[in-house]
Design a protein around this nucleic acid. Structure first.
Length: 314
RNA sequence: GGCGCUAUAGCCAAGUGGUAAGGCAAGGGUCUGCAACACCCUGAUUCCCCAGUUCAAAUCUGGGUGGCGCCU
């Protein structure tokens, strides 16, 4: 018997029914939901990020949703720190923490107990690196990393400027190798005993139909107005990344029809789901709950409960 | 009905006699501080069909079929 506190997690691609399942399981086992979503963490953006409504929450406490201002930078490191605190609090109250979200990096960082050391950013240095890439090309930038940390260079593609710059920044800031710090970061054992449930469709087309339908529902719920307001506000730092806003800009600028922009949102959402699946699929610890029909909620819930019972912690 | 143009991967598209660019979509994958981010990999034994010219045809010729435009 593991003495570490038990934590349940529900992951899966967007529109796979994580929100619903999380709430049902919370009702069943006396749990509280801890969101693991890089967009829902921000205030506003309610429709685009598909935040659960009060009705969907059914009175179950939800944490780490709408807690950060849109113009505040936020990272996986910040997430892990906050989530640990929230989880500790839930455990103290004798409830079951249920992590629900589609941001793979956040879930993995939290459950694998990735250690993010305290370090500041060096914007000027970063900018100098980006300038190097712009002026002399990706190869020149990459050469810096190859020279500084060959092991790190091996795992980062030369065209992935964002990652190459980050690795160099870490080395610059700490005086240590990025590859070394990375290895050390997962040295500590996870403080949680976790069961990860993964929701997915047996047939990709079924998931895609669901996504399309949900985007239409978002539009009916006022996505366009929300996007107009967020775009007008200007502080797009975070929102600029969210699917559902940037795709509408051509419509606001009268360069594309609304219908075409909405189709684009659907397409980007489908691609996002595909990337999420790629991320989660490689995690062998995930206990997949496969359904060929998302409307068979009873079946999904029963299969989930069976998996939880099998695990034997609650 | 006549004349002109055109037909290359799911879509857009280069190639005009020498052995099928590229982009998008799709699929697969990577991922440790912006992750709904960023990045990588994969595709036509074949160019609408048939016949011909040629050592060699997606490229030239003839015919057929489909599309577009103009005319009657």
């Amino acid at each position: 018997m593991d003495s570490k506190p038990f934590v349940l997690a529900v992951v899966g691609p967007t529109a796979s029914g994580k929100t619903w399942l999380g709430v049902e399981l919370a009702k069943e086992y006396g749990g509280e939901v801890v969101s693991a979503d890089s967009m829902q963490i921000y205030k506003g953006m309610d429709i685009a990020s598909a935040k659960p409504t009060a009705e969907e929450m059914q009175g179950i406490p939800h944490h780490l949703i709408s807690v950060i201002d849109r113009d505040t930078p936020f990272s996986a490191a910040d997430y892990v720190k906050m989530a640990r605190e929230v989880i500790a609090d839930i455990l103290v109250r004798g409830k079951l923490p249920i992590i629900v979200g589609g941001t793979g990096l956040y879930v993995d960082s939290l459950l694998n107990n990735v250690q993010f050391s305290e370090m500041k950013s060096d914007p000027a240095y970063r900018e100098s690196l980006y300038a190097l890439a712009r002026e002399k090309g990706n190869d020149a930038l990459y050469a810096e990393l190859v020279a500084a940390d060959p092991a790190a260079a091996e795992s980062i593609h030369k065209n992935n400027t964002v990652r190459v710059v980050r690795a160099l920044e870490v080395i610059h800031l700490t005086g240590r190798l990025f590859s070394e710090l990375k290895a050390e970061s997962i040295a500590e054992e996870s403080p949680y005993d976790s069961l990860i449930l993964g929701l997915n469709a047996a047939d990709r087309a079924v998931l895609y139909e669901r996504i399309n339908a949900r985007v239409d529902a978002m539009v009916r719920a006022g996505l366009v107005e929300e996007a107009r307001a967020v775009c007008a506000e200007g502080n797009m730092r975070t929102a600029a990344n969210a699917i559902g806003y940037k795709e509408l800009i051509p419509f606001f600028d009268s360069e594309m029809s609304l219908g075409d922009c909405i189709d684009k949102i659907k397409q980007e959402t489908r691609r996002y789901a595909k990337r999420q699946l790629t991320w989660f699929r490689r995690n062998e610890r995930i206990r997949w709950i496969i359904t060929d029909d998302f409307s068979k909620k009873y079946e999904i819930l029963e299969n989930s409960k069976k998996a939880i019972a099998n695990y034997g912690r609650v």
